[in-house]
Design a protein around this nucleic acid. Structure first.
Length: 217
DNA sequence: AGCACGATTAACT
DNA sequence: GTTAATCGTGCTC
C-alpha cells in the first residue's frame, strides 16, 4: 500500500479542473460514518460537469437555489433529488465562484458491508453501488448532506487516499443520460471509469478474506 | 398555476 | 429493448 493510503484528502485536491478531479478521484475511497460505523467504497466511475456553458450541467440555467452550492468553494457536497425518487452525490470542484462538480457514479464496496447489504436488500453485492442512485442508497446519502463540507474534521462523509489507478485502466466515454442535451455537450467524453472494475479491481487491490469483502451475512 | 422533464432504477416483454 | 414509478425544479403563461 502506498504511504499516502488511508489519510484524508485535503481541499486543494478538489480545487482543480473538473475533468482532472474526475480522473484522479478514481481509486480514492469514499467514506460514510453512520452511527459511528464506517461504510466505504473505492470510486470507480465519475463524471465532470463544469460551467454555465456546459448544457449538460444543472448550472446551464445560472445560479438558482438548487445549484448555489456548486458556485461555492471546492470540497463540499452537492446532493440533489431526481426522477421523484433518487438522490445523486456530487463533489463541488474548481475555484470559489465557478460552478463545477464531479458526479460519483459507482463504488467498489469495501467496508461496512453488513450495513450496505441492509440498505440494498435482496440485491447481489455487485449491484450495491454500481450506479449514482444506488451508491447513495448503499451509503445512506440524501439531501440532508447537501452543502456539507467533505473536508471538515468532523464530517460524516469524506474522502481518503486510496490506490492510484494507471491510465491503462481508465476509459473515458460521453456522460450518461444526457439524451436531450445539444452537442458538443452530449458527446464530450467527460465520464471516467476503471475498466472491468467488477472483475479485476477486487483482485488487484488484493481483497481477500482478511478484509470483510467476502464475509457472508 | 400549470407543465414538461430529469446526471435513474427495476421490472417487464 | 421498453416502461412505470414519482416529485422537485425551472420555465412559460
Amino acid at each position: 500500500m502506498p504511504l499516502t493510503s488511508g489519510g484524508r484528502i485535503p481541499r486543494e485536491f478538489f480545487e482543480d479542473h473538473a475533468c482532472v478531479v474526475a480522473r484522479k478521484l478514481l481509486g480514492q475511497r469514499l467514506v460514510r460514518i453512520l452511527d459511528g460505523v464506517r461504510l466505504a467504497g473505492v470510486v470507480v466511475e465519475t463524471e465532470a460537469y463544469r460551467g454555465e456553458e456546459d448544457l449538460g450541467c444543472h448550472c446551464r440555467h445560472g445560479r438558482t437555489p438548487r445549484t448555489s452550492v456548486m458556485y461555492g468553494p471546492a470540497g463540499f457536497a452537492y446532493v440533489y433529488f431526481t426522477y421523484g425518487m433518487h438522490w445523486m452525490f456530487n463533489i463541488v470542484v474548481e475555484r470559489d465562484g465557478f460552478p463545477a462538480a464531479v458526479l460519483i457514479r459507482a463504488l467498489l464496496p469495501m467496508e461496512g458491508l453488513d450495513r450496505m447489504a441492509e440498505h440494498r436488500r435482496e440485491k447481489p453485492m455487485a449491484r450495491w453501488a454500481d450506479g449514482p442512485a444506488k451508491l447513495c442508497q448503499a451509503l445512506s446519502i440524501d439531501g440532508k448532506l447537501n452543502g456539507s463540507d467533505l473536508c471538515a474534521p468532523k464530517a460524516q462523509l469524506f474522502l481518503e487516499w486510496g490506490q492510484p489507478i494507471p491510465d491503462s485502466r481508465v476509459t473515458t466515454t460521453p456522460r450518461v443520460g444526457l439524451n436531450s442535451v445539444p452537442e458538443p455537450w452530449k458527446s464530450i467524453p467527460w465520464r471516467y471509469l476503471v475498466s472491468d472494475w467488477q472483475a479485476d479491481l477486487p483482485r488487484e487491490l488484493n481483497i481477500t478474506s482478511e478484509t470483510d469483502y467476502w464475509r457472508k451475512r
